[in-house]
Design a protein around this nucleic acid. Structure first.
Length: 948
RNA sequence: GCGGGGGUGGUCGAGUGGUCAAAGGCGCUAGGUUGAGGGCCUAGUGGGUUAGUCCCUUCGCGGGUUCAAGUCCCGUCCCCCGCACCA
């Protein structure tokens, strides 16, 4: 209720609508959402961080722009709409029960545009409910006609700079959907990589057995060809060559090689027993049967290299022992000549490494599951440490990894080989149920992130940026180097068409790399005619290039251009960490290519993820709490406070109901605090006119010192987005101190003590402002109720009064607390009823000694004693030595802040102390009365105690 | 494999080479307040010992540098994240 009230007031007053003025500006953006589902508390954190920062900086006098828009381009909603249309049960369930779309709205989601419209307006609503200080006049969607013109401009600009070029690339592809598929589109096979295989051609009559391998260098050790008699082989026409492969392999290969036409079926039994020519070595090798060969991997035809391939080794062994099979195919005469030919040497292995590893893992047949493991292990070992044996001409002694590449080149150039792609593992199944293939996309457009000069420039962008947290900077550097050409055109989805090649849509990450610059001018473009937003228009606005093609009036252009120049560059970019390797890096790339240096981004903050009671949050698994529900259950301020307090932005936060409730109680305590102060005061509290009071009590000074410490620490933390640390200081630790203060002055609370009232009033006044960025609604309400001027949201951020921060005062209170604790402890041990407590303060010479030790700075006892004796601080040299030794042990534990008047301090708190320990207290500054010789125990900050 | 980040008490997590047996939250225990167990306040939460002390153990494991190391160096084990055609 109060939240709605203040949101309305802010909107009515246009408090967060930011226009250029003469204040210092601050432009902060957060990655806009792709609204394909409801907003959950994870999103809540993402958008609360910039809001808190924006509010903080606004209170510090900055002109802050915090805008929001909707990323609706891309393919996911197309798939969602399809599944809704198909009445896919899982999808319907997800949208009805997790995203909580009302039943009558559900069928409308068959339209992808409706999906993004529906959820972006829901996002908008929830963001309002959260009280975000967004300038909504700049809201847009990435399919708005005006925005599309902007995308056309940027993509054309990059194209003209030669940074977008045509190429081809293998992709995971679903033949049924006729579209590339990402990992998230898969039913099975998530994370499976695509391998490049070498297709080696073995001649047999007028046909070619095409064998696929990851290890072309082992061709010199080929002993035979394997065919699986149980699967279907076919003959295909590959550009005039007659290839023999499996039918399943054709399914995949036909997406990579054009016009791969099936000519005939081949019965593998007809080939087994015959010989094929190894064109590289010139030897004839037999064709043999093997059951481990699968029809869907590679070409379905395998050449055997039993020395290094465990599967080949064991298959050969199996065959030699299988008289039935040998008889069937009449292989008895030739099988004896088929023996492993060594190819690689590898430390720790013998001449036939495959044999060693098979024996080591106790593999007994070619259908053993461990075969995969054996193959992987040997493959890795040989790749990193193996060498080709010396007898191989041209390649002997070379590293396996080197020989592999070189030999492959040679084979391809001699047309003995070609390349193909296949999944590292199968199956890979699309959500539609179809078996995926690797397709080579030609005609595809690429963003040339491989361009070295571009990379160079992008590194420069990064160098000049502040990255939070700092460790991520290494990550960025790595990604900038690692990024290869990025396919930037698509066939399916919502989006803008490539201006020069209309069959393609612009890929959705590509259209969102410099859109922050669009925010700066969005409020003007909204109502303009898209036809006026031609290339010349944007060239003028963004790059100040003149042209006759501009159709917009100069004074209008000027205003727009000025606004852009006022807000740009972007001061802070915030985003979740999963975008580091793409979006955030692209942002740097594109800024470096399009804008001059003074418009490059200045800072990036990367967020962690959200957990729910210790488990990963995920909409698709239903493990989420919707933000709107959280607001309803706890209020926006509690949600905001919890999200900001439970972890720093870049750490993963964990939504635990118990702790959320704790946060709620904490906020209620705060809400009630002003009221409590008013009661103590006994009259109404007016924050706008607090009468200044000269304070003398240590405890009052202590409270103000602590308050200023917390303000200082909190401000410093917020400056670098440490919301948790800021709240730790401004909420938890401050409250702890206030609790202590109230406890300390408890005896004064009903006496209308003006010192106490003053201190408490200052706390209320400061505290409301300190928490205003985090819990703006609550703070506005309190601010208004207790006479604050204007909005709390636009009040000045509390300034630190350094003169009130007093380490000696803080030390004094620490002394009192320790004293009480010590007395209590001694009392407990003595057991007897104590009547009187004598306290002895440290004599001056001990302070002198401390001063000396402090100057020396380290516990060098010899030096301390030496100087002390020389300075003649005390007659009793032996006692100097004793105390110095003790001091040496303690000085690193005690923060020395200078001499304090202990007697004065203790007397000031005498009433409190005696009440606490329930005893009469007598303070001695000398040992004139010291029946048990305790006074000598007194040390600075640690008076001696005698209990009677 | 490559790259990045980590391993601190029952748990989540602070922690600049000395002020750290280790903030704060949560949990647990005790006391106070109250309309008993809710909330709030106070105290405790590795072990031993004691007139407020001191000792031992301890920051994944093993070494090293230093008067002094959770913090720096070397080695080692383990865990998490990213590796792309996509938000």
């Amino acid at each position: 209720m109060i939240e709605k009230k203040w949101q309305k007031k802010w909107a009515d007053e246009k408090l967060f609508e930011s226009n250029p003025n003469d204040k210092e500006k601050l432009f902060i953006t957060v990655a806009f959402p792709y609204p394909s589902g409801a907003m959950h508390i994870g999103h809540g954190r993402t958008y609360t961080v910039p809001d808190v920062y924006a509010r903080f900086k606004r209170m510090n006098g900055y002109n802050v722009l915090f805008p929001m828009a909707w990323h609706v381009t891309g393919a996911p909603v197309i798939g969602i709409a399809d599944r809704i249309k198909r009445k896919d049960k899982w999808t319907l369930d997800l949208y009805e029960n997790v995203h909580r779309v009302p039943k009558d709205e559900l069928p409308k989601l068959e339209d992808p545009e409706y999906i993004v419209r529906y959820f972006s307006s829901e996002y908008n609503e929830v963001m309002h409910d959260m009280g975000y200080s967004i300038d909504w006049r700049r809201e847009f969607r990435t399919i708005d006609p005006t925005y599309k013109k902007f995308v056309e401009w940027q993509i054309t600009t990059l194209h003209e700079k030669g940074l977008i070029q045509k190429g081809e690339h293998p992709v995971k592809y679903c033949p049924n959907c006729d579209n590339p598929v990402g990992d998230h589109d898969l039913l099975e096979g998530e994370g499976v990589g695509v391998n490049e295989l070498t297709l080696l051609k073995f001649k047999i009559d007028d046909k070619i057995l095409v064998t696929a391998t990851l290890r072309p260098e082992t061709i010199v050790g080929a002993t035979n060809i394997w065919l699986n008699p149980d699967i279907e082989y076919i003959e295909v026409d590959a550009d005039g060559e007659n290839w023999i492969i499996t039918r399943e392999a054709h399914h995949n290969l036909s997406n990579q090689i054009k016009d791969l036409e099936i000519k005939d079926e081949i019965n593998p039994d007809d080939l087994i027993g015959k010989f094929a020519l190894n064109q590289f070595t010139g030897t004839e090798i037999p064709i043999l049967p093997a059951s481990f060969v699968s029809g869907d991997y590679g070409s379905g035809v395998v050449f055997s290299e039993p020395a290094d391939a465990p599967a080949d080794f064991i298959a050969l062994k199996d065959l030699k022992n299988n008289t039935e099979l040998l008889d069937k195919y009449g292989l008895n005469d030739i099988i004896g000549d088929v023996n492993p030919i060594p190819v690689c040497t590898l430390k720790g292995y013998g001449e036939i490494p495959a044999k060693d590893i098979i024996e080591c893992l106790e593999i007994t047949s070619q259908n053993d599951d461990k075969l995969h493991e054996a193959t992987n292990e040997l493959y890795k070992a040989q790749h990193s440490k193996g060498k080709i044996i010396d007898t191989v001409e041209g390649y002997g002694g070379k590293k396996v990894s080197v020989a592999r590449e070189e030999l492959k080149e040679e084979l391809i150039s001699k047309n003995i080989a070609t390349t193909m792609y296949d999944f590292a593992e199968r199956p890979v199944i699309c959500r539609c149920g179809e078996n995926c293939v690797v397709k080579i996309m030609d005609d595809q457009w690429f963003m040339k992130y491989s361009n070295p000069e571009w990379k160079e420039k992008t590194h420069e962008v990064l160098e000049n940026e502040t990255i939070i947290p700092g460790e991520i900077k290494n990550n960025f550097n790595y990604y900038i180097d690692w990024l290869d050409d990025w396919a930037c055109s698509r066939k399916v989805g919502l989006g803008t068409k490539l201006p020069w090649d209309n069959q393609w849509l612009i890929e959705p990450l590509t259209d969102s790399t410099i859109y922050m610059s669009y925010y700066s001018i969005a409020r003007f473009l909204k109502d303009m005619n898209p036809d006026d937003l031609n290339l010349a228009f944007f060239n003028k606005v963004y790059l100040n290039e003149d042209s006759d093609d501009i159709t917009v009036a100069p004074e209008v252009i000027k205003e727009i251009q000025d606004e852009f120049n006022y807000w740009y560059p972007l001061d802070w970019r915030l985003s979740a960490k999963d975008l580091v390797g793409n979006h955030l890096s692209f942002l740097m790339f594109h800024h470096s290519a399009i804008f001059p240096k003074d418009k490059w981004p200045r800072g990036t903050v990367v967020f962690g993820m959200g957990l729910l009671e210790g488990n990963k949050m995920s909409s698709s698994k239903g493990n989420v709490i919707l933000l709107k529900d959280a607001i309803k259950d706890y209020s926006a301020d509690v949600v905001r406070l919890f999200l900001m307090a439970s972890a720093e932005p870049w750490q993963d936060f964990d939504w635990r109901e118990k702790e959320v409730l704790g946060t709620k109680r904490r906020l209620e305590w705060f809400k009630d605090f002003a009221n409590k102060v008013e009661q103590i005061k006994g009259s109404s509290l007016d924050l706008n006119s607090i009468d200044k009071v000269e304070l003398t009590r240590t405890i009052d000074l202590w409270m103000l010192s602590q308050l200023n410490q917390h303000v200082k620490a909190s401000s410093e933390a917020l400056e670098v987005f440490q919301t948790r640390k800021a709240l730790q200081e401004s909420l938890f630790l401050l409250k702890k101190d206030i609790d202590h203060y109230l406890y300390r002055v408890n005896h004064l609370l009903d006496k209308k003590d003006e010192g106490v009232i003053y201190v408490l009033s200052i706390i209320v006044e400061t505290w409301i402002r300190l928490l205003s960025p985090f819990t703006p609604h609550t703070c506005e309400e309190l601010w208004a109720e207790y006479g604050g001027e204007g909005f709390a949201s636009s009040a000045q951020w509390p300034q630190v009064d350094e003169s009130l921060i007093n380490p000696k005062i803080e030390k004094s209170e620490e002394l009192i607390q320790n004293l009480i604790k010590d007395i209590e402890q001694i009392k407990k041990m003595v057991g007897d009823e104590a009547e009187k407590v004598h306290i002895y303060t440290a004599p001056d010479w001990k302070w002198d000694l401390y001063e000396i030790a402090n100057e020396i700075g380290k516990p060098d006892i010899g030096q301390i004693i030496g100087r002390a004796v020389k300075a003649d601080i005390c007659d009793d040299k032996k006692e100097i030595a004793n105390v110095a030794k003790k001091l040496g042990r303690e000085m690193t534990k005690t923060k020395y802040v200078g001499k304090i008047d202990e007697a004065d301090i203790i007397n000031d708190a005498l009433e409190y102390i005696s009440k606490e320990i329930d005893c009469e207290v007598i303070v001695h500054e000398d040992d004139s009365y010291d029946p048990q010789n305790k006074a000598r125990n007194a040390m600075p900050y640690k008076p001696a105690i005698l209990i009677q």
